[in-house]
Write a protein that binds this DNA or RNA. Sequence first.
DNA 1: TCATTCTGTAACACATTCGTAACACAACTA
DNA 2: TAGTTGTGTTACGAATGTGTTACAGAATGA
Lengths: 237, 237
Amino acid sequence: MEPPVLRRVLIVDDESSIRDMLAMALEMAGFEVVHAGDAQTALQEIASLQPDLAIIDWMMPKTSGLELCRRIRKNPDTAEIPLVLLTARGEEDAKITGLEVADDYITKPFSPRELVARLKAVLRRTTPRGIDEPVEYDGLRLDPVGQKITARGRSLLLSPTEFRLLQLFMTQPNRAFTRSQLLDRVWGGDVYIDDRTVDVHIRRLRKILGENHSEMIQTVRGTGYRFDPPNTASTNR
Amino acid sequence: MEPPVLRRVLIVDDESSIRDMLAMALEMAGFEVVHAGDAQTALQEIASLQPDLAIIDWMMPKTSGLELCRRIRKNPDTAEIPLVLLTARGEEDAKITGLEVADDYITKPFSPRELVARLKAVLRRTTPRGIDEPVEYDGLRLDPVGQKITARGRSLLLSPTEFRLLQLFMTQPNRAFTRSQLLDRVWGGDVYIDDRTVDVHIRRLRKILGENHSEMIQTVRGTGYRFDPPNTASTNR
DNA sequence: TCATTCTGTAACACATTCGTAACACAACTA
DNA sequence: TAGTTGTGTTACGAATGTGTTACAGAATGA
């Protein structure tokens, strides 16, 4: 029913070589990757970018991986994010203590294929965050159950396609979609439609959103479009 | 102000190991748990214990989960109980067929955290009140015990179908229903009736409600209909 | 700067969905 | 039985949604 979703993964490790290795493997598997070198920036990235999953190294200089996990779980806004611990062989206690906070662990060394398989398994058994939970950015509110979008309390008159488009954007903010990805996910896989049609629907959506909110739909030149909620410093890449 | 409610959840599954696992997770989250190993006892438990929610396995030996859902919906006394289907991965059709009758589904395997989150979400949006309590929106009053609906004191002359339709809407406001969901819940599970019939009954209902109240029944283009009470700034969270 | 590519915008024709009324038959009542 | 009410189906017009095209304007790179 649902087309495959491109997931955003945060990698937290103090060694940049490992980060890069992980990133390459994950990007080849179709994940979007974000980095963090220490717990502090990790927390910031999580808050602003809302990744679908975080890979956290057990051994880190200042704050340990376990401690970072605990902090993430403590904040209700981030408590539901699946966490995967990265441990060296022999750190058996990590597996025991770690699994009480994290959702899975991976032992170094590991093959990229194994890594990807484990992540997918974790994601599969984790809720696609709030598939019917309401989302709100700057007064723009999506109510998936009621199939309704309101701007500062006033309900917007959206066509079905416009609704699905905006719904996709709002549930996957800060992520750039190509036109064909949008056609795939909003129109449904097997249609053959001109790419340019997306542009027209974006135009209509922006018009309905009006001055205030239309700025959240950014065009990514040469690629497609992206939904940027405010107060998101979006410092990656 | 409502006292903290301890919700009673009924688990229906033929495998006792899964029942126990579920029960443990739910009890830790503060739910009261009741078991049933088959559809027959499930129906008895529901009738006598009136749980706030039921988790039902899709695949069961004698009566299937779907069939059980339909029976629960068919009995007016139990029709409004939120139902969550438990499906194995790959049973895609279960999700599609199931969601016409159930309120949500959970795919095995799942994490306890996911389970609890989903249940809370379902409870949040389905049972804000007791089933027999009267509901009133803008002078439109539903009296479930007396099976009567009055508008500003004058009682409305509704046909049985119209009554059940409006009752469903008023007990589940702000929620969009597809035509087949409405057929399932208002007409009863196994009838084969044209979708368009729903439109006609909506029309009749609107006519009876008149200028003032008919606006509460909104059509959701491409989907179905929704009951929108006025003054609902929806400030939850 | 110019040339080229990409995106915004409006207008149009076609497709789809929905509202409405009319009708036939079923269910119920007296 | 005859009359009344309830219900499902159908048909058609109106309203709305959608894809395409054309052109203007903006961004990009040499």
